[in-house]
Write a protein that binds this DNA or RNA. Sequence first.
DNA 1: ATTGAAAATTAGTATGTACTAAATTCGTTT
DNA 2: AAACGAATTTAGTACATACTAATTTTCAAT
Lengths: 230, 230
Amino acid sequence: MEAELTSDIARQPLTRPTEDYLKAIYQLSNDGGLVATTDLALVLGLAPASVTGMIKRLSEQGLALHERYRGVRLTHEGRRIALRMLRRHRLIEAYLVGFLAYTWDTVHAEAERLEHAVSDDLIERMAQVLGHPIFDPHGDPIPDAHGRFAEFVHVPLADVAAGETVTIRRADTRDDGRLRFLAAEGLVPGTVVTVIARQPYNGPSSLEVGGERRIVGHELATMLLCSRGT
Amino acid sequence: MEAELTSDIARQPLTRPTEDYLKAIYQLSNDGGLVATTDLALVLGLAPASVTGMIKRLSEQGLALHERYRGVRLTHEGRRIALRMLRRHRLIEAYLVGFLAYTWDTVHAEAERLEHAVSDDLIERMAQVLGHPIFDPHGDPIPDAHGRFAEFVHVPLADVAAGETVTIRRADTRDDGRLRFLAAEGLVPGTVVTVIARQPYNGPSSLEVGGERRIVGHELATMLLCSRGT
DNA sequence: ATTGAAAATTAGTATGTACTAAATTCGTTT
DNA sequence: AAACGAATTTAGTACATACTAATTTTCAAT
């Protein structure tokens, strides 16, 4: 259903901003719905007017569809490229952590630059030495070379009832401070956690993690996506 | 004598073209002399007029000194950056060959893009896992973090007299076809070669390489830089 | 139905880097 | 010394991407 990520259709090389916009649009429209100019501007750190201009260019290139005053969404080709960038980004993160002793709180910035510079060849070599991983260090799924990836339904730790035992699968933040804190608390993908108690009004949760007692605030508990059971 | 390659003097981030120009200027002026606009244009694949414009910008940034109608040379700061790019380029090549099964004929293009995208941190990690190598896969010296590197006087294989035994130290071409051919013939850095005979008028040399008899044309023999002895 | 705030777009501008075509300078040859 | 060809620079333009300020559109509230 999805075209090859490494399709060799002859096309002018994409610029770095183009790749960034496509990735951002993709990530802001999980459902494939319209993405608002303001949201895009916020995520990319740009003025809304700049985003409008770029969206026009993306449309002319057949990478996005612009509904004036309503938003953008990606074309098939645009989505193909976005998924290609996502594969690159996440594989690079996995590689840096696996082979160059990066930690999950430092890989994001590095991958953000490298994803635009590596060749398809290098990406596939990284995938190979990593054993074709399906998840990156944050638990985000890595699309395969065809743009397909596993989708799981996860529950935020903040929504897990007291008494339940879950496994952390994904950390939904890129903020390095938060990531460092979570790692220090042992709250990383793969960890099995039992919720001992939950305070109401966005209060903290008491956890049992590997025999130890831990407390996490509501904000972080929201970002820890889990699956039920061990 | 040379400033830190990883100096953290606050400066606006350099653009990719800027880095490319500085590296090219450095490489075209081994002696530190003036580099001609045309030569630069040729190496960079640009129109001379474009080069003139860029040189002007480099001068304004204090990275190069322009003597109108005569040429350019680098300032200390420009040279510092050029050496930093050279270190990056060559370490990346060494890394790709050492850890990702690249061959010496394919690394150049990949390194050419990556050298602009990696962080100083990543470069130093690569250097570390490689054991701080001094030469890249082509035998080119890798500047250290201070911009210093070993300079050796080498003899082109084409100038080696019959009967002499030399060790190949460096292949002075980036052309992938030529590099592939040389590798297939076993003519790579570290190989010990005895010249059996040399034909005059830019003719081929007969060699003895690891017990085998080989013939190399003059053009390639010019590009193989050697040191005397085994 | 009107209005007002938020969102989005247009208009006009700046920057970096490239181009072509025209003009200038240099250095050598006569 | 003059003149010519090669090298270089200038002039003028284009394109991608960003910005601010001004304008327009949308939508929800009255």
